[in-house]
Design a protein around this nucleic acid. Structure first.
Length: 151
DNA sequence: GCCAACGTTGGC
DNA sequence: GCCAACGTTGGC
């Protein structure tokens, strides 16, 4: 089982939306690295920190769990979707995604807070200029952050 | 709203 | 296969 961090903008689809929907297809990822993580490494049961980006206080706000392994993203074939990709062939879909299930909301662990801890210094999400919306989290980092939430 | 950093595209 | 131009991300 692996740990992840997934980013989402609260104005687009935040933790409260996931809490309401219970599960959601993680569609719209159009980055090969992020796709490969979902396609090649994510398994049902994997846990992910839910991170709010592009908002007043960016940071981790909850936990989600992979509920369905990767399958083709329907939005790539939908001409009306902003995620439509004319270069993707139905018999060889370019974009895949997993489903996530809501686990729980957590106390906010802000980006500022994450940066304060040496144990987390290597986290991909903290790297300068990082834009990847799905990043792996080490088990040690996962446990450490859970610890921060208990304080 | 600005802008640095990054991924992708396309001309050559 | 290089690399300039472009579009997007996301913190501030």
């Amino acid at each position: 089982m692996r740990y992840w961090l997934i980013k989402s903008e609260p104005d687009v689809y935040g933790i409260d939306d996931l809490a309401r929907d219970k599960t959601t297809p993680w569609t719209g990822v159009r980055n090969y690295q992020a796709r490969n993580f979902m396609r090649d490494q994510m398994k049902p049961g994997d846990q992910a920190f839910y991170y709010h980006s592009n908002c007043e206080t960016p940071g981790i706000v909850g936990i989600a769990e992979v509920s369905k392994p990767a399958y083709p993203d329907a939005t790539q074939f939908d001409r009306k979707s902003k995620y439509y990709d004319e270069k993707s062939a139905p018999d060889n879909p370019r974009w895949l995604h997993v489903d996530f299930r809501f686990v729980k909301k957590t106390p906010l662990v802000s980006l500022d807070e994450l940066r304060k801890h040496k144990a987390l210094a290597k986290m991909r999400v903290l790297a300068r200029g990082n834009r990847l919306s799905i990043t792996p989290v080490d088990p040690d980092e996962w446990q450490y952050i859970l610890g921060l939430m208990k304080k």
